[in-house]
Design a protein around this nucleic acid. Structure first.
Length: 345
DNA sequence: TTGAATTAATAGGATCAGCC
DNA sequence: GGCTGATCCTATTAATTCAA
C-alpha cells in the first residue's frame, strides 16, 4: 500500500494510496481510538515540564499513522474531516439528549424521546444526524468527555500553563527525519512498514556552536513519528490557511545535508544508535498498544456476552412466567368446569 | 515584546454517489 | 431528475511557536 518514491534529491519518500469512499464503522472506531490515544499521549506529555518550548507536532499525521497501523487506510485530511463531521454530529446529539433530559426533569415526564428512540424522520425534523450509531456515539462520548475532564485536571495541576492540550514536547525536526540510506538496514524488521520505509533527506547538520543536537538523543516517547508521506490526494495545494495546514504532511524536502565526511560518520554512528533505541521503543509501544487493544476487544466481547445472557435470562423468565400463568389459568378453568359438573342441580 | 508563520478547531457550502 | 447522506473543500478564528 505504500509506494516508495524518490524526490528530486534522490531521497526516498512514501506515497500512500488512501482508501476512498464511505467510512466503515470499523474505520470510524479506529479513528476514534486514534484520537483517544492522541489525547492520552498529549495529556501524558503535558505533565512534563518541557512544555511549550518545543515545536508542535503534526497531530493528524500521527493519527493517520496510527490508523494505518490499525488497517484504516485514510489520509490525515480524511481523518481530520471525518473527525470534524463526527464531532458535529456528536455535539448535535449530545445537545439534544441534554435538552430532552432537562425537559424531562422539569416536567417530571419526558415528552420527547431520546435520540435513539426516534425515527429517522423525526431526527431529520429536529436537524439531528439521521444515522449516528449508538456504538460510535458512546465511543465519542468516552473520548470527548474524558478529554474534557483531563483538561480540567491538567489545568489545575499545571498552574500557570493552561495550554495543556496542544503542548508538544517531541521535537519534530530532531529524531524523526533523516536516517541516511545506509541505516535502513539497521532498523529492526519488526518496525511497521510505515515507520521503516520513509527515509527522507538528511537535514543540514547543526552548526558546531549549536546546543547539543537532539538528533542523537533517542526520543523517550514510545510512539511513532509523523512520517514524511505524501498524500495521494491531489487537490491540496493552495494558499489558504486551511490548505497550508493540509500541506503539512511531508517535510524535509530540499534539506539534503552537505556536511563533511567526518561529521557524517560521527552523526551516522550516533543516528544509528539512536535509531536502534527508537526502534526498540517503538516496538515496545506497538506491543503495549496491541495488548491494550486486545484487552479492550475482549472486554467488549465479555460485555456483549453478559448482555446476551441477561437478555436470555429475562426471556426465559418471561417465558416461564407466561407458561406458569397459562398453567394456572388452565387449572382454574378445569377446576371451574369440575365444579360446574359436580354441582347439585 | 511583537509580528509573522503555522497548526488546530470549527462551520458552511460544494460535490458526488446511491436510492426512489 | 430529485432527494439524501457522506465526503471533500474552503474560510475563519484562536492558539502556539519562533525569530527579529
Amino acid at each position: 500500500m505504500h509506494l516508495v518514491m524518490a524526490d528530486q534529491g534522490g531521497n526516498n519518500i512514501v506515497m500512500r494510496e488512501y482508501r476512498k469512499g464511505n467510512w466503515t464503522v470499523n474505520e470510524t472506531m479506529v479513528l476514534i481510538e486514534a484520537k483517544k490515544m492522541d489525547d492520552e499521549r498529549r495529556m501524558k506529555k503535558s505533565g512534563d515540564s518541557e512544555g511549550r518550548s518545543k515545536p508542535t507536532e503534526l497531530r493528524w499525521k500521527w493519527v493517520e499513522d496510527y490508523c494505518w497501523r490499525k488497517g484504516c487506510l485514510r489520509s490525515q485530511n480524511q481523518c481530520n474531516d471525518k473527525w470534524d463531521n463526527l464531532m458535529r454530529d456528536y455535539k448535535k446529539v449530545r445537545e439534544y439528549q441534554r435538552r430532552t433530559a432537562e425537559t424531562a426533569e422539569g416536567n417530571n415526564h419526558n415528552n420527547e424521546g431520546s435520540y435513539w428512540e426516534m425515527e429517522k424522520n423525526a431526527r431529520k425534523e429536529k436537524n439531528l444526524p439521521s444515522n449516528m450509531l449508538r456504538q460510535i456515539y458512546e465511543h465519542l462520548e468516552e473520548v470527548v468527555e474524558k478529554k474534557g475532564i483531563q483538561r480540567v485536571v491538567a489545568a489545575g495541576e499545571s498552574g500557570p500553563n493552561p495550554n495543556i492540550p496542544y503542548v508538544m514536547d517531541r521535537p519534530m525536526t530532531s529524531v524523526q527525519p533523516s536516517l541516511p540510506p545506509l541505516l535502513q538496514h539497521q532498523l529492526p524488521a519488526a518496525i511497521p512498514p510505515a515507520i521503516a520505509l520513509p527515509l527522507p533527506a538528511l537535514p543540514p547538520l547543526p552548526p558546531p556552536t549549536a546546543a547539543p543536537a537532539p538528533l542523537v538523543q533517542p526520543s523517550p516517547l514510545p510512539y511513532a513519528q509523523p512520517l514524511p508521506t505524501v498524500d495521494s490526494d491531489t487537490s491540496e495545494y493552495s494558499d489558504s490557511p486551511a490548505k497550508r495546514r493540509r500541506r503539512s504532511g511531508g517535510n524535509g524536502e530540499g534539506t539534503s545535508g552537505t556536511a563533511s565526511a567526518n561529521n557524517s560518520n560521527e552523526v551516522g554512528t550516533a543516528i544509528s544508535k539512536s535509531a536502534s533505541i527508537i526502534a526498540e521503543a517503538i516496538q515496545a509501544s506497538e506491543e503495549r498498544e496491541e495488548r491494550r487493544h486486545r484487552d479492550l476487544v475482549s472486554l467488549h466481547e465479555r460485555r456483549l456476552k453478559i448482555e446476551e445472557s441477561r437478555t436470555e435470562i429475562n426471556k426465559n423468565g418471561i417465558d416461564g412466567l407466561v407458561a406458569a400463568i397459562n398453567k394456572l389459568a388452565n387449572s382454574i378453568l378445569t377446576l371451574a368446569s369440575h365444579n360446574n359438573q359436580s354441582a347439585p342441580k
